[in-house]
């Protein structure tokens, strides 16, 4: 098994945390501050994160969450009489929502409410997969990288075992179990998280393998710090960049995983709603009522695109060595890359 398992979007993630060496960074600033400044300078990523948050706010406020009602007059379960044969009533010039801005499905459910519910579920799945996979991945990777030896061998072989099965395949099986057990979106997302941690584990492991040899770890050990303390207080903060970047990119692939599973009929099931389910359920309507297809499709792409842009922006912000890409035209393209091979400054310790 090869040991490099990066997200394809990821050219390289530096092992040394080398944050203070860029021209535009003030050496006196904290790591978080520097990362933040670099991130907000990336306009695309900032726009992406704003759009993402707005979508979450819109979806939750529109149809509510659980027992709390939203501002939109229909919910995603109730049947209404068909208005205008179910065609969208949204008008842009002059702007008006109408009764059913996104139209209605076959039996008169409001498609705006269904789409909003789909966004809620997709976002829930994205975040939950990200969280669960990150926690498991970090623990497995940290233990393997820190203790090495047989712990490492065992944990990495377990990782290999899971990596042999393609994510979609194991996702479909998990989705079927969740569906048969009536677990719903929450259970599905948690289970998918349990089977998506492998990439993070490998990255965190290699990060730990290199960080544990550094002087500050040696110093902590001499000072009598326990293994747990060294792992969580000393090494982990230095590996945070790798972790955040890879889990953001995992989140981006998570929405595609969920929609694919729901599309194939093993994920979230009616009467609940999911963007993938909406597409698969209305595929036969593609030529007759195309809006049933295009609304969920558009939101899938938007959500995934946002997550990818945010992930890319975070990588740029955390990793000074990565080749920077932003839509902002750089006057001197090479300027950002000249100073990357400077010897590392002492890493942040607490």
């Amino acid at each position: 098994m090869s040991t490099i398992q990066g997200n394809p979007l990821e050219p390289s993630i530096g092992d040394g945390v080398d944050l203070a060496s860029r021209k535009d960074d003030n050496p006196g600033e904290s790591q978080g501050r520097i990362v933040y400044k670099r991130f907000v300078s990336n306009k695309v990523a900032v726009v992406a994160i704003i759009v993402y948050v707005l979508l979450i706010v819109l979806s939750i406020s529109a149809i509510g969450l659980g027992p709390i009602p939203g501002w939109w007059k229909y919910d995603y379960k109730s049947l209404n009489s068909l208005v205008n044969e179910g065609a969208p009533t949204l008008k842009l010039f002059p702007f008006s929502l109408g009764d059913h801005p996104f139209g209605q499905d076959r039996i008169g459910k409001d498609y705006f409410a269904l789409t909003m519910r789909g966004i809620q579920n997709s976002v829930l799945v994205m975040i939950l997969i990200g969280l669960v996979a990150t926690v498991i991945g970090v623990v497995v990777g940290a233990l393997a990288g820190y203790f090495r030896g047989w712990v490492d061998s065992v944990l990495m072989r377990i990782t290999d075992v899971f990596i042999v099965i393609p994510a979609l395949v194991i996702g479909l099986i998990v989705g079927k179990s969740a569906g048969a057990g009536g677990l719903g979106a929450f259970g599905l997302a948690a289970l998918l998280g349990v089977v998506s941690w492998m990439v993070i584990a490998r990255l965190v492991r290699s990060e730990f393998l290199s960080l544990r040899e550094r002087e500050f770890v040696e110093a902590a050990r001499v000072a009598g710090a326990s293994d747990v303390r060294i792992i969580f207080r000393h090494i982990l903060p230095n590996a945070i960049g790798v972790i955040i970047v890879s889990s953001t990119l995992l989140v981006a692939s998570a929405i595609l995983l969920e929609t694919a599973i729901s599309y194939l009929g093993f994920g979230i099931k009616s009467p609940d709603s999911s963007l993938g389910l909406l597409i698969s359920g209305n595929q036969s309507a593609f030529s007759t009522r195309p809006w049933l297809f295009w609304w969920p499709a558009a939101f899938i792409v938007i959500l995934a695109l946002c997550a990818n842009f945010v992930g890319d922006g975070l990588r740029d912000a955390f990793d000074p060595r990565s080749k920077r890409f932003s839509l902002r035209k750089t006057a001197e393209p090479d300027a950002a890359e000249v100073s990357t091979q400077v010897s590392p400054t002492p890493p942040v310790t607490k």
Binding site: L256, G276, I279, F286, A307, N308
Partner: peptide, 18 residues
């Protein structure tokens, strides 16, 4: 091309196929 590849990244393959 970069924008395009990001877009392809975010496009579910079943959507593309349909």
């Amino acid at each position: 091309i970069t924008l395009f590849s990001f877009f392809l990244f975010s496009l579910p393959s079943f959507l593309m196929a349909v």
